[in-house]
Design a protein around this nucleic acid. Structure first.
Lengths: 341, 341
DNA sequence: TGTTTTAGCTTAATCGTTTTAGCATAATTA
DNA sequence: TAATTATGCTAAAACGATTAAGCTAAAACA
């Protein structure tokens, strides 16, 4: 620990006043208390001289606030979440708020433990990317009136603030593009999951295919979260045999591993099969590919900034009943991989 | 804030004992205080029933410890650092310690502010990836006897714990491989910087070239940190005109952007020029490339685990004079991109 | 039986702040 | 001039935990 930190009492003694006055002089921005201009200057200067750093533990204990928020992601080493974390951190830092970060690895027990730890630390609120089977924890938070904002995924039956993508629109854009290019046999490749955003992406695909009268062409392949590359090695050849002309992926990871497999088996994109990926945030990946990859773009920074702004308001007003759901809009970045050749 | 949290006082009243006894019953692992078995059971069960969660602000205020560490990186959305952060977080979580994360963007002022904020929050120690022009801040910490462990980069003139890579050995391995393959005109491409690890990589390259009697072939290209891709578009054609046969990059980012440029101008790897990248942590990038990329591998997880372990010891013993420098070892992953064809 | 030891508990101080209530003194008003 | 109001400050309680010191009754000892 630092040798011996200056406290408000030390300053009070040095100046020859009470600790209360020091506190007023240092904090009272809105002049609720009456302190002479001169005294304020004097105290501030002594504080600076003595290198005073307020003790936040004491501050929190007294005020009940910590100026700290908890951010719980599924995995910080996933670029999409890392970028979001980064944005939140920037915003928070700007506002003088500290961020605690935790990864759940989609493990509900880890999730629950993280929430408890953060609650103990007294975070003022949470920004959470919920994982599967964790509704009950979120519900608990909401019922306890803890300020919470969900990101990326949400629960329709929970009165909770959230910032999500219009996921149905996202895949619709993809189908629009492929249909416009003349593709008809379009397959959607996704995970086995109940997570809302992924499910919505499927819905969007299905609805859009219907819109174009392609009910008979609707086809979805679902794989497990584990061993994606291995699974793709089995799946992709089958898909091609089925005569599929174009692929839409529900996530980036799926797209990348499929592209790897396509390269392995010597198939060309888009000549042999067209591709639209979801999210270009693993940018580098596509950079090195021989053709530019079309993808659905999410406004990543907005996830972070909006979530932080909603949470701030929740914390300030203290009224968690007044929740807010922000829906962000996807954009299709059409490049070579979805062109009809 | 949570409705109304149970305090130790509530439990004391419920059981009909003093708060001291409750504290003893809940915390005293080493039986320093004498509490009857029965009472311990009773208090613990009531605490569970009332869903007691200790107030960490109060705990910290009293004990001076927070069970929280500060991790300051250059950029959390950089995969290498995100992975390290992830490891630290895992280790910390295991040990019941919370992590606060901050990114400096290689900005010394941001760095200084983060350190101050974390100090105010009373972190028990720091794990830091230092950025340029921040020695003085680190020195201040060291002199104030704050437990600090530096990662990835360090300062030779500072008595501070660190976990770094044997960077000289890293580039030596690369030269070894290329020389072994028969390349002679080998160029090292790096940043303009004074950061220790990058400088060491250059030294390793130079020394190794000397070792093979290639003094005359020693050639280093340095570019600025900004607009890497643009800079590469100018640099790479020149390099090829110079008749360079092989490239060693001091960072991943440089390697990736160069590969992009090489593809853009229609040059083949390794036929037109061989390549060894630094660090394969942006794995995806290389996955999609048409050829497998040779790279110097850093034991990423070890950066995290070792740093945390060293820091834990520092915090426990409180003896920051007894610092420890861990040097990790690189490994060369030789693949297609460095083969002589 | 009287004294010492010990087990089991309580009291109260403490950590560094914030904040309510109140106390002089000076300035303003009637 | 006396009453009122403003100004600038202080005293002390509170936040929730930990912990040194002390107290009481029972157990152990001589």
């Amino acid at each position: 620990m630092v040798a011996k930190r200056t406290t408000i009492k030390d300053i009070a003694e040095a100046v020859g006043v009470s600790t209360a006055l020091v506190s007023f002089a240092l904090n009272d921005g809105n002049k609720k208390y009456r302190v002479s201009e001169e005294m304020v200057r004097k105290i501030r200067s002594v504080a600076r001289e003595m290198n005073y750093q307020p003790n936040s533990a004491a501050k929190s204990l007294r005020s009940g606030r910590t100026d700290t928020i908890g951010v719980i992601l599924s995995d910080i080493s996933n670029r999409f979440f890392a970028d979001i974390a980064r944005c939140i951190e920037d915003e928070a830092s700007e506002a003088g708020i500290t961020v605690m970060i935790g990864s759940t690895d989609e493990n509900p027990r880890k999730f629950e433990r993280l929430v408890d730890v953060f609650l103990n630390k007294g975070v003022d609120g949470f920004i959470i990317v919920p994982c599967e089977k964790s509704v009950h924890v979120i519900r608990r938070l909401v019922e306890a009136k803890v300020p919470v904002v969900l990101i990326d995924r949400t629960y329709a039956d929970l009165d909770v603030s959230s910032v999500t993508l219009n996921n149905r629109k996202a895949t619709m854009l993809a189908v629009d593009e492929l249909y416009g290019q003349g593709f008809r046999k379009i397959r959607f490749i996704t995970y086995h999951t109940t997570i809302s955003n992924i499910v919505d992406r499927e819905t969007g695909y299905v609805e859009s295919m219907r819109k174009y009268g392609l009910e008979d062409e609707i086809s979805v392949s679902k794989i497990k979260y584990e061993n994606i590359l291995e699974n793709m090695r089995k799946l992709i050849p089958q898909v091609l045999e089925d005569g599929v002309e174009a692929l839409i992926f529900s996530t980036n990871r799926l797209a990348i591993d499929s592209l790897v497999v396509l390269r392995e088996i010597g198939k060309k994109v888009p000549e042999d099969v067209a591709v639209i990926a979801f999210d270009g945030s693993e940018t580098f990946a596509f950079d090195l590919y021989y053709t530019t990859v079309s993808y659905i773009k999410q406004p990543i920074e907005k996830f972070g900034t909006e979530a932080f702004s909603v949470l701030s308001k929740l914390i300030k007003t203290g009224d968690t009943r007044d929740y807010k759901t922000v829906v962000l809009h996807p954009e299709l970045i059409a490049q070579e991989s979805s062109k009809k050749k």
